[in-house]
């Protein structure tokens, strides 16, 4: 018993999922399913690749070709799939720790090559599955199991990191802003090149509890009240943007050569030689 979208995109036998009550991952996974559906992609031509962590359970629920890989290596596996079969649409679902700590090198090099992958980060600012350790996106000063006095680390801004490494599509969405985030994911999938969509999740169980952010409703309300769309943010001063989070597309450069296309050209050239 589920909606048409869920019936068409999820493995019902594996639902309900294991995520905690109020976890943003479920909302974001639905956004990904909606984005694929909106694009009218053939299920057999879509591959979902995930690593390890709460986010990465998504590969078990989504009814496509799926691969649940090792910690941090989702992008490496996805690169292999895309190189072998460039005609497939390859989507990586990963977390903040999986993509930017353990898998940080895979992330920057996939971005550098501009290989046509779509990386959707369910960014909950903490390691949820292993008990609330701080991650590279845990805000400075926040508490975590491994930061009992507050984290002194500075953070990665994932779209900025990806752009610095050469990503040709970079965006941020949020769990609360469903239509906007779905569209950003959809545009990322449609983009021929490396795309990263950093999705602000909510983790009431670890990040919320450790930092007294309240329950899922309070955390979602924070997003409702403090997330600013990029078009609006562009008209605001740095002072006005203090304490706010900006969502939207930060880069979309479709004209940059894509890696598997270049590789195919190389093969054709060498065949003639």
């Amino acid at each position: 018993m589920a909606s048409e979208l869920i019936n068409n995109t999820m493995r019902l036998r594996n639902l309900p999922h294991i995520w905690c009550p109020g976890c943003g991952n479920g909302i974001l996974m639905r956004d990904v399913a909606q984005a694929i559906t909106n694009l009218g992609l053939d299920r057999d031509k879509v591959v979902i690749v995930s690593g390890i962590g709460c986010s990465s359970r998504a590969a078990g629920y989504m009814n496509y070709n799926t691969l649940h890989t090792t910690h941090g290596r989702a992008i490496a596996f996805a690169t292999g799939i895309k190189m072998a079969k460039p005609e497939l649409t390859v989507i990586v679902i990963t977390g903040d720790g999986d993509s930017s700590a353990i898998g940080g090198n895979h992330l920057i090099h996939a971005a550098r090559r501009n290989i046509d992958l779509t990386v959707v980060v369910f960014n909950n600012n903490i390691y949820g599955m292993t008990g609330g350790q701080f991650s590279p996106t845990t805000p400075t000063g926040s508490f975590a199991t491994t930061a009992p006095y507050g984290s002194i680390d500075r953070t990665f801004d994932l779209p900025t990191l990806a752009m610095g490494a050469g990503a040709t599509y970079a965006a941020r969405g949020s769990a609360y802003h469903v239509p906007q985030t779905t569209k950003l994911i959809q545009d990322g999938i449609a983009h021929k090149g490396f795309a990263l969509i950093d999705c602000m999740a909510v983790c009431p169980t670890y990040y919320g509890r450790k930092n007294k952010k309240g329950d899922a409703v309070k955390m979602m309300t924070w997003q409702k009240e403090n997330v600013v769309l990029k078009a609006k943010a562009d008209t605001m001063t740095p002072e006005e943007l203090e304490g706010k989070a900006v969502i939207g597309c930060f880069r979309n450069e479709p004209e940059v050569p894509e890696y598997t296309a270049e590789y195919t050209k190389l093969i054709e050239r060498l065949k003639k030689a």
């Binding site: 909606s3 048409e4 309900p16 109020g22 479920g26 909302i27 979602m220």
Partner: peptide, 14 residues
Amino acid sequence: CEQRCPDYAIYLEK
């Protein structure tokens, strides 16, 4: 409600 239910437990049916 359907958009934001993390558990797909509430939805509109045609």
